[in-house]
Nucleic acid binder design. Structure first.
Lengths: 249, 249
DNA sequence: GGTGTTTATTTGTCAGACAATTGACTGTCC
DNA sequence: GGACAGTCAATTGTCTGACAAATAAACACC
């Protein structure tokens, strides 16, 4: 029953999964050195290029890092928040762009999670967080700011809010949600009035966090969500009006 | 300035990044076929194995899929929720296990996000969701259940709760948080009394969802979080007592 | 004892080859 | 003319063997 079935998957995929299981299950610990490519090739009964493809798969997920030289080899990576973060953003961005997700759905998810952070942020915010939020607020009032920079500032503002919750796991999760939406937001051209209103809502959030008023913060975020959806809806409607239903082929 | 600096990264890493950028930026759309490996090798001025390593990196992130045969090749993948999900779980699991995250922090993040789903779940739950939750509740009352199966049922219960919010983006995010914690929870041996109490709290959550009472649901989840942390804390303390501070090397 | 050099090990890359798979083309038979 | 089978070409999957580059340890030399 073991060798009867022709392997449906590639050898390199199998090997990668085998090694990944070893890492996830703790049979290979952080910092451990994997056998050399030649040894792995012999162990699995394949050639070195095949092993290398498997290792590259793991490297793509930041599970291992490779160094060459006498004491080189592949080492089990310490998955930092930063690396996890980066993958989270890539995955979330693609998920959003490839699945025709209504902006409303994405917004809802994002603000739901952000509201989850709010009580913690209110309880634990430091002056550093407040300073960051106020600094971004100031930038957002600058009429010279490009739309892209405005969106970037928006992201920075919300990141500061999330970080104020002082829970790295939450920060990591939210980073994906917030930053993945930036490309979507970048498609919006903001009028001066839009910006003023968004900044005002941001100010309400900041004030609530400073006052450690979780309920007010929640309300401000809810209002911000509603306005964001409204704005985006208007943009989409305008775009749809300009390029009406795909002409049939 | 272009060729002066010796490339610090591998060629295969560069190629992978180049192709990934093409995908993320939309220059390659879902379903598009990439050039064949031989063509890519020529384009980038490298050999085919190097191209293959790059492609394997992208495959590891579910960005492409490969098929062989006359019309085969590498195609830009449609990133399904399922695939994103799987990566999310792997990443989150590793992040939790490798960063010595206090269980309290992980719990806090998870329940914060789950509470974020609660109002939506209350508003939108269908009878199917309620049925699933009640079915898992029934399983959890079975004294014959192993600890692993109990944990698995716990995960299934919370997944049903999250899915009831009817927001796929939220489901995808939460799946990582909930399932990544399962290995941690599996380390806990539950007494009959623990199980009874957890089941009771689950019942309270279910009743609140059925009654569409968001406040009660929030309260029940908060109580559940507190009890989970308490339980885990007791386990950790017992373990620490048995194996006191690492003896110096 | 300190310093510079050699050397062994390991990854990164290349070239060429063959097997396996799969769709498309083609020719035959009804 | 149409259905069916065989052949073919394109492409990925894998192997072999080789060389280059990096790197730390061992070693020779002063």
């Amino acid at each position: 029953m073991s060798s009867a079935s022709p392997p449906k998957t590639d050898r390199s995929t199998e090997i990668a999964r085998s090694l990944r299981d070893d890492i996830v299950a703790g049979r290979l610990l952080v910092g451990d050195r994997l056998p050399s490519e030649a040894e792995l090739a012999e162990q699995y009964g394949v050639s070195r290029p095949t092993v290398r493809e498997a290792l590259k798969r793991l490297a793509a997920q930041s599970l291992i890092r490779s160094r060459r030289g006498a004491t080189g080899g592949a080492f089990v990576n310490h998955l930092s928040y930063e690396a996890a973060h980066g993958q989270q953003i890539t995955t979330s961005t693609l998920l959003l762009s490839m699945n025709a997700i209504p902006l409303e759905t994405a917004c809802e998810a994002r603000f739901a999670m952000e509201r989850a952070c709010a009580p913690l942020a209110c309880a634990r915010r430091t002056s550093a967080h407040l300073d960051t939020m106020r600094a971004e607020l100031a930038r957002q009032s600058d009429a010279q700011l490009s739309d892209e920079a405005f969106c970037a500032s928006d992201v920075a503002f919300h990141r500061a809010l999330v970080d104020a919750a002082a829970n790295p796991v939450l920060s990591y999760q939210l980073a994906g949600a917030v930053e993945a939406m930036q490309p979507l937001m970048n498609m919006i051209t903001f009028t001066a009035r839009d910006r003023a209103r968004i900044a005002a809502l941001h100010r309400a959030v900041t004030d609530a966090v400073e006052a450690q008023d979780a309920a007010a913060c929640d309300a401000a975020l809810t209002a911000l969500e509603r306005y964001t959806v409204e704005l985006a809806g208007a943009v989409m409607a305008r775009r749809a009006a300009k390029a009406p239903a795909q002409p049939g082929s």
